[in-house]
Write a protein that binds this DNA or RNA. Structure first.
Length: 759
DNA sequence: CTATCGCACTGTAGT
DNA sequence: AGTGCGATAG
């Protein structure tokens, strides 16, 4: 019965066996949290709990899928019936079921962030406001923040503190925009991501019978990654667990990294107050990482004040020291890290799979991609622009959405003139006016344009309406794939892309085909009972990059991703790159939220992803908006206890790099102690040798760029003396990053014009 | 109505 | 550097 308990340590076992009453599991990094959650669920089922009455909320769909598989290994098919998924997917499901209570229909659309911003832009313009001031992203964030704190548009307008805050931010109209936004979403029969949670709260608040139903249904409620839940999510779980009181939350306050988007660390810090008879179990033994990595991580996180008492330890071996790589530019950082990976692979016989490069922002991936490609190392990028955010994909999805839900305003805007059918903004605006005057939905006007307006464009509009109507007729007869491929063909979308013979056009055509393949897979999957287009759209709106599956035959790749994306993952060899002030910790985070502690937790998460070896790197200069910029090493480097650091590696690497690039080029400077650089930052830019004499002025000829080498002293007609910091060789294309010191000011340049070598 | 060009601006994570 | 905007021409 409890055979699977044998491999567990004492607190883990205790957590698995504690089945009744509120439970909080504080799970340190690498402490076997997933294992405990898996076994606990399996244990509940073996104890006779109906899997249908277990609710398990995870952070990503992928995590849910993996956990379901692991539970299945223990209890078999019963695992299928568990209610498991992200907050958004589980409550979207419940909302579809109960939609009528809120005045929605069950085929409501889910607006993604782009849809929301687009709608806000429309509202801002309609109200005659300046969208340079009322930036859609900013307005959206304010609305989103309010919803996550369960503040409705009316509450927002009536709250003097919020109003004062908006006034101070010179955005007094946000509340009005909020109210219109909510109204328009409702009329479009659409919910945005935040609404899925907000409306669930409203549903449970205003419909006690519905709440009661789910309260009784879910005998056990479990929440993974509890530290990253927001108030809205917390209240839902609390309400659901109110009768049975079987609520189990698992989390680690030290790994809370989503406060910026509304996650409330107070949820975990105050949980004890909400549940006086709470049992708390701490999982403190780390099974993942080496002694060095665990201790280094502890030395960093110890600087945070707001945290629960916890002592993460490991009995693993010491392992190698943490290496620090210093690069003069972002490109060099890419090359040094790629070379490091290459050499580790060769000397230790490792696979690409064993490595991950973690950065703070997606924009940093470029340099690593280029460098890895040059060394023929396969890599995969997680995050960035996801498949489902691509224009061509969103276009086809918009057609499908609109076929299902003709109130979907954002889908309508996307496709009304796509492909071009001569219905421009002016015509659309006219239709909107007619609809508003007659007080009927836009689709009513479009579908019966002859009755409502007469004009040159009527035939084009009729054509569009007939198209959509014909699609609608297919819904009951055909499955999702048949409808989607029919739409792709007959709408002209596929044709337009097919005729575009550019490289991008080809790739966009392939992307649409891939979407159709994905729909085919959905239809062919026996697990999916409902094969309708509506069912497919429900799942697709909540898919993210973290969830996309890999081709299992071709997955030996180095992983490149943001630290946020790496949550919950682990790799033998981890590179944390771009450790520079203003980048990590991020300047934005410090300015707007003044939350250094969250950045530090992010650093902690990054460190604790590593199992065997950790390498950190930073660059002295970096491109930003196509302009080079000087960088200082991150304060976080200083926060790692020096006894866990090894510095020398960067020196040998650097000289190897210089040799490779400039045969015979001088090594810029032997990096000394890393900490010395931190205390004497100016030394970074000091000229190595003051140059007095040089050859008479003669501008660089393109052929002479071969003479450039890292460390080479140069003079520029405008910027004066400088040192070559980095060379970038791309086929015949050679670029140099040069650091100039003029009047105490440092400038970086990327051009050979008006440049000459100094003896 | 559509295409194109110059200009201004961008500055974080992702359900 | 990339994007998205408005102005202008076709």
């Amino acid at each position: 019965m409890t055979d699977f308990l044998t491999g567990l340590n004492e607190p883990q076992r205790e957590a698995v066996l504690h089945t009744d009453g509120p439970l909080m599991i504080i799970a340190g990094a690498g402490s076997g949290k997933t294992r405990v959650l898996t076994y606990r669920t399996a244990h509940l089922i073996r104890q006779g709990v109906d899997p249908f009455r277990i609710l398990l909320l995870t952070f990503t769909n992928k995590a849910a899928g993996e956990m379901r598989q692991r539970i299945e290994k223990v209890v078999g098919n019963d695992a299928r019936a568990i209610w498991m998924g992200t907050f958004h997917s589980v409550f979207a499901k419940i909302l579809r079921f109960e939609a009528s209570h809120l005045g929605f229909t069950s085929n409501f659309s889910i607006y993604d962030t782009d849809d929301s911003k687009s709608l806000i832009r429309s509202i801002v313009k309609e109200r005659g406001l300046d969208d340079k001031i009322y930036k859609p992203g900013v307005v959206f964030n304010r609305i989103s923040g309010a919803k996550n704190r369960l503040i409705s548009a009316d509450d927002y307008l009536q709250n003097p503190i919020i109003q004062a805050d908006d006034a101070a931010a010179r955005l007094p109209e946000v509340g009005r925009i909020f109210k219109i936004y909510v109204d328009r979403c409702f009329k479009a029969n659409a919910m945005d991501f935040d609404d899925l949670l907000f409306n669930t709260n409203i549903l449970f608040r205003d419909h006690p019978d519905v709440l009661h139903k789910y309260q009784h249904k879910f005998r056990h409620v479990m929440v993974d990654e509890f530290q990253d839940t927001n108030v809205s999510q917390y209240l839902i779980t609390r309400k659901l667990a109110a009768i049975h009181q079987n609520i189990c939350v698992v989390g680690d306050d030290a790994q809370s990294i989503y406060a910026f988007r509304g996650a409330d660390i107070q949820n975990i810090l105050n949980f004890e107050k909400d549940y006086p008879d709470l049992s708390t179990i701490r999982l403190e033994q780390n099974y993942r990482s080496t002694q060095t990595i665990v201790k280094a991580a502890n030395s960093v996180i110890a600087r945070n004040r707001a945290q629960l008492r916890k002592e993460v330890w490991t009995s693993n071996e010491d392992g190698p020291l943490i290496e620090v790589i210093k690069a003069s530019s972002d490109n060099e950082e890419g090359r040094l890290v790629a070379t490091h990976i290459f050499e580790e692979k060769v000397t230790h016989g490792l696979r690409n799979n064993d490595f991950a490069v973690l950065y703070r922002t997606n924009a940093q991936s470029r340099a690593f991609e280029e460098a890895l490609r040059k060394l023929n190392i396969k890599y995969r990028i997680i995050g960035g622009l996801s498949f489902y955010q691509r224009k061509e994909i969103k276009d086809l999805l918009a057609y499908l959405r609109f076929t299902i839900n003709q109130s979907d305003e954002e889908a309508f805007k996307r496709i009304i003139n796509l492909p071009k059918r001569g219905i421009g903004d002016t015509t659309v605006a006219k239709i909107a006016v007619v609809a508003a005057e007659k007080g009927i939905p836009v689709w009513e006007v479009v579908a019966n344009i002859g009755q409502h307006a007469a004009g040159r464009w009527n035939s084009a509009i009729e054509g569009f309406a007939d198209l959509i109507k014909s699609y609608g007729l297919l819904l009951d007869k055909k499955d999702a794939y048949e409808v989607a491929s029919h739409v792709a063909k007959t709408s002209g979308l596929l044709k337009e892309l097919y005729e575009d013979k550019t490289v991008e056009g080809l790739s966009r055509y392939e992307n649409v085909q891939e979407l159709l393949n994905a729909i085919k897979e959905f239809v062919d999957n026996p697990d999916n009972e409902d094969k309708s287009l509506g069912a497919f759209l429900q799942t697709v709106s909540l898919i993210t990059t973290a969830d996309t599956d890999e081709d299992p035959n071709d997955n030996d790749k180095v992983t490149l991703m943001t630290i946020h994306g790496a949550k919950g993952l682990e790799f033998d060899h981890v590179y944390i790159v771009g450790l520079e002030e203003d980048l990590f910790p991020s300047q934005m985070m410090l300015q707007s939220r003044a939350d250094l502690e969250e950045e530090r937790r992010l650093f902690y998460v990054a460190i604790t992803r590593a199992e065997k070896r950790l390498v950190v790197s930073y660059a002295e200069s970096r491109y930003q908006y196509g302009r080079p910029k000087m960088c200082e090493p991150s304060r976080f480097l200083d926060e790692i206890d020096t006894k866990y650091l090894q510095i020398s590696r960067s020196a040998s690497r650097r000289s190897a790099e210089s040799r490779e690039l400039s045969d015979g080029g001088e090594v810029l400077r032997q990096p000394t102690s890393f900490l010395k650089n931190l205390t004497a930052k100016t030394s970074l830019n000091r000229a190595t040798t003051p140059v007095v004499n040089h050859k008479p002025s003669e501008n660089f000829a393109p052929s002479d760029t071969r003479q450039l080498a890292v460390g080479q002293r140069v003079e520029h007609a405008k910027f004066g003396f400088g040192t070559v910091k980095d060379l970038d060789i791309n086929g015949t294309d050679r670029k140099a990053v040069i650091l100039f010191e003029k009047a105490g000011e440092k400038t970086l340049l990327l051009s050979f014009a008006k440049l000459r070598i100094v003896e």
